[in-house]
Each structure stands twice: as structure tokens, then as C-alpha cells.
Write a protein that binds this DNA or RNA. Structure first.
Length: 146
DNA sequence: GCCAACGTTGGC
DNA sequence: GCCAACGTTGGC
């Protein structure tokens, strides 16, 4: 899961302990949260548009997906008048902090690692803020963080 | 700040 | 249904 640290960083995540991954307004990213994630799944927390950009730590799916309430909040930047109470357009999952890496695993380092060449993250033109990571890829990132 | 890549919107 | 215009993402 990607976040710009200027708006929400791994340090914010650590401070809060848990949060709801709301505000996602891309159907493919929503589908991953609504249909592919299960409580207990581990997640790489990625800092985008940052210095440095890269994986900053690990979080975990803390519960089942639910409607994204920000879509109903007129004051929210994520307000979406098309999302109805009885048929929400947007879903999100609660997440909880697990670990902050001692260093950020930079995008360049990930790109340079041959074993990570098939990560969705490094595929050209992939801008999804929520994207799948294989178990193998996840473990390689973990090793790099040690 | 630039710009390529992509998703969405809306006219036709 | 096509596609141009526009907005957003995100690396650099």
C-alpha cells in the first residue's frame, strides 16, 4: 500500500497503531481491498513521492473490508455523491502497525534486484496505490530490511 | 517543476 | 462505442 509520507507516513501509522485505509478512489485498488485481502494479511507500507521513495515498514490487515465512510462526508476531499448508503461505491480495510524498517528499502534498490523484477511495483506504468505482492517478494523485501 | 502513463469524463 | 480532453499519480 502506497502513501505519501507528507500526508500519512509510517511514523503516523506507528503513532496511531490502527487506521482505516480510506480515500482510495480507484476501482482496481478498491477491489484488492474489498475482495483479495483478509484479516491477518501482511502489507508493505510504501512511501511514494518522498525522499527516499520505497518500502518503509510493515502493516497488517486488521479486519474485514467495510464501506469507505469518507465518501459520504461532504467535508471530506474524498466525498463522492455517487456512493449510496445502501450500495457503497468505495470500500476499504482497517490496518494496524506492525514494524518500521531501520531504513527505507528504496525503489532503485528494488528495481536493481533481479528477484524482484516481477513485482507489480516495478512494472512500467503501474500507479495503483494498492497492489498485490507475492509471498516470495514480500520475504525478499524483509531480508533486505535486515 | 516537469512530464509520461494512465484512468475517467463527456461530447458525438 | 469511440476518442479527445482533462486530472491524477508518482518518479526524477
Amino acid at each position: 500500500m502506497k502513501s505519501e509520507p507528507e500526508s500519512y507516513s509510517i511514523d503516523d501509522m506507528k503513532r496511531d497503531g490502527t487506521t482505516t485505509w480510506d480515500g482510495v478512489r480507484n476501482y482496481q485498488a478498491r477491489n484488492y481491498m474489498q475482495k483479495e485481502m483478509a484479516p491477518g494479511d501482511l502489507i508493505l507500507f510504501y512511501h511514494s513521492n518522498a525522499e527516499p521513495t520505497g518500502v518503509a515498514g510493515i502493516i497488517e490487515v486488521a479486519g474485514p473490508p467495510g464501506p469507505d465512510e469518507t465518501a459520504w462526508n461532504h467535508k471530506s476531499p474524498y466525498f463522492d455523491p455517487d456512493s449510496k448508503r445502501d450500495q457503497p461505491t468505495w470500500y476499504c480495510v482497517p490496518v494496524k502497525f506492525k514494524k518500521k524498517f531501520a531504513r527505507v528499502i528504496g525503489l532503485a534498490e528494488i528495481k536493481a534486484n533481479k528477484k524482484l523484477g516481477s513485482m507489480v511495483l516495478v512494472k512500467p506504468g503501474t500507479r495503483l496505490s494498492v497492489q498485490p505482492v507475492s509471498k516470495e517478494e514480500f520475504e525478499i523485501i524483509l531480508e533486505l530490511a535486515d
